[in-house]
Amino acid sequence: MSLLLNIKNVFALTAVLFLFTACGGGGGSASSTTATTVSTSPSTIETTTPTAKAVHSGQVKDSSTGDGLANVKVSLGESTTTTDENGFYTLSDLTASEEAVINFEKEGYLLGSTQIQLKALSGDNTTSPNYLEYSMHTNNYQWDYNSSDEIDGAHIMIDASVSYRDINGKPYSGTNTAELIYFDITSDEGKAVFPGAFKGINSNGTLVQFDTYGLISILLEDSNGNRLRLAEGETVALRFDKVSSLEKPDTLPLWYYDYEQGLWFEEGYAELQEDGTYKGEISHLGSWSLNRPLEDEAGIYRGRIINEDGSPMSDVRVHAVGENWIGSDLTTDENGMFEINVIPGSSFQLKAYDYKNKYGANYNGTIAAIASGKIVEE
């Protein structure tokens, strides 16, 4: 069966998603693509396998205006550069990787982070096949307060007795500048700014997929614009808005995002309140999310992207987008094949983007939910 994709920003090419006939039935093992046990020690977690050198380029844009953003710090491992006046950047002499983590930082904007695939250069190629277009969102909720004041806002509660440390680890008192942003993850905007992938390391040290109930980013700076942190043993409370369309368990795990590793880590939990919100305490600042880890095996969706002439389309990024999660295949292979882990029991839509030719496509329709451990190849 062939399913037609609607093209956005098409040049002259029509993409077709071809779902091929299942081989081996619908109950195949998913052991190679589900939870993987890894060490909880940040220094020993490995998500990439070095192979060869690659070059990566892209453009960073403002999410509201669509304009290119100048002077964005772009970092991938030890490689760092800054975008030009139109938001373009290039990073050279990189190590090829299946899951490289690239970060974006600019004053006044929410920290950005995403995973990309870096393929080695071949033939006459001068750039990585994974050209990236990334949108950054303004961090427009900012206020100043005295460090000895109590804060009781919509999404954060800080007691007046909380103490802080500066970049040198010394006690700090004075004016704090707070930057806080909250996203409803069921919205398109919330999914777009979610750092990394919808997976992370749980409290048992296992890499698991999850769906999410919200994202909060909180940063504090001193009067000179330097980052502050909470003193050891201090906590602040976060409150996540209720999402009426989602289930409401009594507790949900809290997770923080490690920008260097590009991974989420479970730490603590939040409790359901009478008004439907969730409240939990954190011991350090940064980006936090309220996630429900996948307890059962993921469902697996396999397919193929072909050109209208029937030729396979390689290096196309494919996403399965659920109500509050995204599953991704970073790029299709040389035969146009992709495979995506999906949340079992949750329907989803398909989106694809060709980073070499810079156009995207959405499948007009919703893919029915896949049961845990099942493989669908229609």
Rank of each mutant, 00 (worst) to 15 (best):
S217M: 06
V55D: 11
D184G: 05
D250V: 11
E323W: 03
L94N: 04
K248L: 02
A160D: 07
P312G: 05
L272A: 04
L111H: 06
T138P: 00
F11Q: 12
R292T: 12
S64R: 09
K8G: 11
P312W: 01
E274G: 10
I7T: 15
Y213P: 00
E105R: 10
V162W: 02
Y172T: 00
T34M: 10
S287N: 11
N224H: 09
V342A: 04
H56S: 14
D62T: 13
E247Q: 13
D275Y: 07
E78A: 15
L238K: 02
Y182I: 04
I158V: 10
T81H: 06
T175A: 09
K199I: 03
E295S: 14
I185R: 06
G169K: 03
L219W: 03
Y89G: 02
T138Y: 05
D184I: 02
S113A: 14
L272N: 03
T206R: 05
N324E: 00
S244L: 03
I282V: 15
L330M: 09
E297Q: 14
S289W: 04
G24T: 11
A35S: 13
L350S: 06
A100M: 02
D296R: 13
A12D: 13
S113T: 07
L230K: 01
A96M: 08
Y259I: 12
A197G: 04
L207A: 04
E99C: 07
G345R: 08
D62S: 10
T175N: 13
E98G: 09
T49H: 08
F18G: 04
Y213V: 00
G360E: 06
K358I: 10
T206Q: 11
A368C: 08
I370T: 03
S147F: 06
W288K: 09
F348R: 00
K199F: 10
V316N: 02
V16T: 14
L132W: 07
V321E: 12
E377F: 08
K106Q: 12
F11D: 11
L91G: 00
G303C: 09
S79T: 07
G58M: 04
Q117W: 06
Y131S: 13
P129K: 06
T212V: 13
T14K: 13
A368W: 07
S223K: 13
V72K: 00
S43E: 11
H137C: 07
A160H: 05
P344R: 03
D241I: 01
V60K: 01
S187D: 09
G68Q: 09
P344K: 03
R317K: 15
S173R: 08
S346P: 00
E85Y: 09
R165S: 04
V243K: 01
T186R: 04
I167V: 13
V10A: 15
S203M: 05
S163I: 03
A231Y: 01
G233D: 11
